[in-house]
């Protein structure tokens, strides 16, 4: 078996030492620090990115909350405006309603007054006529002369009787 032939042992060990030492030094001085540096750098960047993302998320959250608050405020404001406007319109309408009612009441009262006065006048003129008629009738039918005062009393008595 050639592996057990000591002829090449010295050469094998010599080149192993030289080449492995070169490999070790290259790895220790150049390659591994570089790889470790890249890996650490990546890890750092990822952590930074995560922190940044978290910060931005919080920022967005607070901005959203601000916006929602603004929307709520605006809505409340709008509702208040609408309520005020409604109240104003209502008050105005009630006022007008009341004014109209008062005017109508006044007109009605006047009209009733006028009617009562007209009725009164009419009644008075009817009564005067009746007294006259009574006087004439008594004179003509019975030949009795009745003075105006007596006739008026008689008419008044009949009218009271009628009313009763």
């Amino acid at each position: 078996m050639p592996q057990l032939n000591p002829e090449w042992f010295v050469s094998q060990i010599f080149w192993l030492i030289i080449l492995f030492a070169i490999l070790y030094l290259l790895m220790r001085q150049v390659a591994l620090p570089r790889i470790a540096g890249v890996i650490d750098d990546r890890e750092r960047r990822i952590n930074e990115g995560l922190a940044e993302a978290e910060r931005l998320r919080d920022e967005a959250k607070s901005a959203q909350e601000d916006q929602e608050q603004a929307i709520r405020d605006a809505r409340a404001e709008a509702q208040k405006l609408v309520a005020d406007a409604q109240a104003e319109v209502q008050a105005e309408s009630e006022k007008r309603h009341k004014e109209l009612g008062e005017r109508l009441d006044k007109d009605l009262a006047e009209a009733e007054d006028r009617i009562a006065r007209a009725k009164q006048e009419a009644m008075e003129s009817v009564q005067g006529m009746a007294v006259e008629v009574v006087g004439l009738a008594a004179d003509r039918v019975a030949g009795v002369s009745v003075d105006e005062k007596t006739a008026a009393e008689a008419v008044q008595g009949v009218m009271d009787q009628e009313k009763a």
Partner: peptide, 16 residues
């Protein structure tokens, strides 16, 4: 001492 560069050494060099 025989420290010839051999086929074995060549592949060690290749590994490096």
């Amino acid at each position: 001492l025989d420290i010839s560069f051999t086929n074995s050494a060549a592949f060690m060099l290749l590994a490096v």
